[in-house]
């Protein structure tokens, strides 16, 4: 069986190799900090395997995460000189290889597609070939490997150092932002453990006016939106807001259609995901990957859409669900 853990190790190994290169890279003014940051990330990826199996304590990993926060947060990471082709060379290559350049790039989505549709059902010796529920990770990992092999072959590039260095350049330019999504997921878990949800539920119940169905719809949708903005995803907000307003008021009292109320409520939360830096993997990491000056660029592009859709969700719920 192909397991998600293999690809976590692949990613971890990749971070470690790149950290080794960073250590040697004298063009990086902060090479020690960078190397420390990425090697801790790589080691953390591998060590986590035992943490999720509860066979190793999580505290050392937590400490490593705090060290990474300090390295990134106090500006101890940096990037080396980019050794790449010139724009003229790239234009030249583009003319020479032409459309063939798309083949490896499209191999990633193609393999992901095959994993999601075909390989998902394949069984070997009575066990599924792909670990259940991990098709996305496996698709991405297998896709990256197939694409790399295809790309090396097609470009007649024999030096493995070339893709490693090119990938490291993107990694260095994205920098500490890459750690943020995992950190925010952690914060969500800590919020949940410390009882933030219960407090939000009490506040929501307190501001809820009794009697008006429309007001309850607004409180439920806006509450999902705001709580999602704070937590970074709708998953943490959903049980809290549904227990406070969605179920007792909209479904029970107002006899709303439960699937419609809950589905649209969740989507109101998704509008919040569009505008929050807490959803770093959707909003901040892309800004880093696209090398934007303004790390809030994607959020600004999404802001009007998010508010219009929040209004649309309130309208849909009020008109059709309750």
């Amino acid at each position: 069986m192909i397991r998600a853990e293999w690809f976590f190790w692949l990613a971890g190994g990749l971070f470690l190799v790149m950290a080794g290169q960073m250590l040697m890279d004298r063009s990086n003014p902060r090479r020690l900090g960078s190397a420390a940051f990425w090697s801790l990330l790589g080691l953390g990826f591998c060590y986590s395997t035992w943490v999720v199996q509860k066979r190793a304590p999580a505290e050392p990993l937590g400490l490593a995460v705090l060290v990474m926060i300090c390295l990134g947060g106090f500006g101890r990471t940096g990037r080396g000189a980019v050794r790449t082709t010139t724009p003229a060379q790239r234009a030249d290559y583009a003319r020479r290889f032409g459309t063939r350049l798309f083949l490896p790039a499209l191999a990633i989505p193609a393999v992901a597609l095959v994993c999601a549709v075909g390989l998902k059902r394949v069984r070997l010796d009575g066990r599924p070939l792909l670990e259940k529920g991990s098709e996305t990770i496996l698709g991405l990992g297998l896709g990256a490997m197939v694409a790399l092999a295809l790309g090396m072959l097609l470009l007649r590039e024999r030096r493995p150092a070339v893709p490693l260095h090119a990938g490291r350049s993107i990694l260095e330019s994205a920098g500490w932002a890459l750690l943020l999504p995992q950190l925010l997921a952690t914060l969500g878990a800590i919020f949940a453990k410390a009882g933030v949800g219960e407090q939000v539920r009490r506040i929501t119940t307190a501001v809820l006016p009794s009697g008006s169905v429309f007001a309850a719809v607004v409180v439920y949708c806006v509450g999902m939106f705001l709580f999602t903005v704070v937590m970074g995803n709708g998953f943490a907000a959903f049980p809290v807001m549904t227990a406070a307003v969605g179920w007792p008021v909209l479904v029970r009292q107002a006899h709303g259609d439960a699937p419609a109320v809950l589905a649209v409520g969740m989507l109101a939360g998704f509008c919040g995901t569009l505008v929050t830096p807490m959803a770093a993997n959707y909003n901040l990491v892309p800004a880093a990957l696209l090398e934007l000056e303004d790390r809030y660029g994607p959020i600004k592009a999404q802001l009007p859409t998010a508010f219009i859709l929040l209004g649309a969700n309130i309208g849909i719920m009020y008109l059709f669900a309750v």
């Binding site: 953390g44 943490v51 999720v52 999580a58 990993l61 490593a64 995460v65 995992q182 952690t186 878990a189």
Partner: peptide
């Protein structure tokens, strides 16, 4: 531990 588990 919460930071470690969250990361993992």
């Amino acid at each position: 531990a919460a930071f470690g588990n969250g990361f993992a």
